[in-house]
Simulated scan of single mutants.
Amino acid sequence: MANQRGRVVLVTGAGSGIGRAIALRQAAAGDIVLATDIDLGAAEQTAKLADGACHAFTLDVRSPEQWTELTDAVIAEFGVPDILVNNAGIALGGAFLDQTAQDWEKILSINVYGIIHGCKIVGSKMVQRGRPGHIVVIASGAAWTPNRVAPSYSTSKAAALMIAESLRTELAPKNIGVSAICPGATRTQLAANATLIATDGAATEDVRADFMDVQSRYAFATPDMVARAVQYAIRFNLGIVPVNFDATLAWVLHRISPALMRAICSIPTMKMAEGVARVATDRLPANVKFHRD
């Protein structure tokens, strides 16, 4: 399957960022891409940008009913997907005790249950078809980074990673590979769209602007780097793929000494993160960044 062209590839959260980059890369490689997003207009824009076959669909990954309807429609027109990329996700920043039960329900409904619904509904069709396939879960380096700044996000990504690892053991006899891609900080709109619980509630939008600037200037990875990692994982059927220096370093530290990793990650607080972001934005020249435009 890794060498086939014209594979049917379903990508969630394909309206922007990493999802869009994956959709564009797979379309350029000769695959038939189904770009899904809760924002149909964004998915349609991805389809317009694609150099190859790319079709836009609306999908709220939280809804198993929408997953079922979409899967049936896709199978009727294109056949069972050969590759499923579970990319849709959100971020939520704020200390554990400051986050409400509703905050947790929101992030888990997308970052965890969105993956569960997709893997179960599309994955079962792959198994029934009886041909090789591949499922990709976009997790995060946050999966092995316990912290005081975004604990619900790290929890959701750790769950996503374990879903991928568990499903990999179950589907291997069916010739269906499962890979977890774990990017570090990536230059996307994640901060812009995140829910933030700032230490000073009145300054939330100022904090968001600072985080957005830091993400844009200092994140190591680009969405296309993650998309390349997805292609690499599918080609070689890899279980876990850290993307870029920061995620790889965190993975190594977590494997060598979880206690040391916890000690390091216990230092930053939400207030400290806000202060560092403010200094990086206000005091460092705009041309100071970790990448070239």
Rank of each mutant, 00 (worst) to 15 (best):
residue 1 M to E: 12
residue 1 M to W: 04
residue 6 G to N: 12
residue 9 V to N: 11
residue 10 L to H: 06
residue 12 T to I: 10
residue 14 A to T: 13
residue 19 G to Q: 14
residue 21 A to W: 13
residue 24 L to N: 13
residue 32 I to L: 13
residue 39 D to G: 07
residue 43 A to S: 13
residue 47 A to D: 11
residue 59 L to H: 08
residue 63 S to H: 06
residue 64 P to Y: 02
residue 65 E to G: 01
residue 66 Q to V: 01
residue 70 L to N: 05
residue 76 A to L: 04
residue 78 F to V: 01
residue 79 G to V: 02
residue 82 D to G: 02
residue 94 G to H: 08
residue 95 A to W: 00
residue 97 L to C: 01
residue 97 L to T: 11
residue 97 L to V: 09
residue 98 D to N: 15
residue 107 I to A: 04
residue 111 N to M: 05
residue 114 G to K: 03
residue 115 I to R: 03
residue 116 I to C: 00
residue 117 H to V: 08
residue 118 G to I: 05
residue 123 G to A: 06
residue 124 S to W: 03
residue 124 S to A: 09
residue 126 M to A: 02
residue 126 M to Y: 03
residue 129 R to S: 00
residue 138 I to H: 10
residue 139 A to S: 15
residue 140 S to C: 11
residue 145 T to M: 14
residue 146 P to M: 07
residue 150 A to I: 12
residue 157 K to Y: 04
residue 160 A to I: 07
residue 161 L to P: 05
residue 168 R to Y: 05
residue 175 N to E: 14
residue 182 C to R: 08
residue 183 P to I: 07
residue 197 I to L: 14
residue 197 I to F: 09
residue 203 A to P: 00
residue 212 M to T: 13
residue 214 V to T: 10
residue 214 V to D: 05
residue 215 Q to S: 12
residue 219 A to C: 09
residue 233 A to R: 05
residue 239 G to W: 03
residue 241 V to M: 09
residue 248 T to V: 00
residue 250 A to C: 04
residue 256 I to G: 01
residue 257 S to Y: 05
residue 257 S to C: 01
residue 258 P to A: 02
residue 261 M to L: 04
residue 262 R to M: 02
residue 267 I to A: 02
residue 268 P to L: 05
residue 274 E to S: 01
residue 284 L to Q: 01
residue 285 P to Q: 03
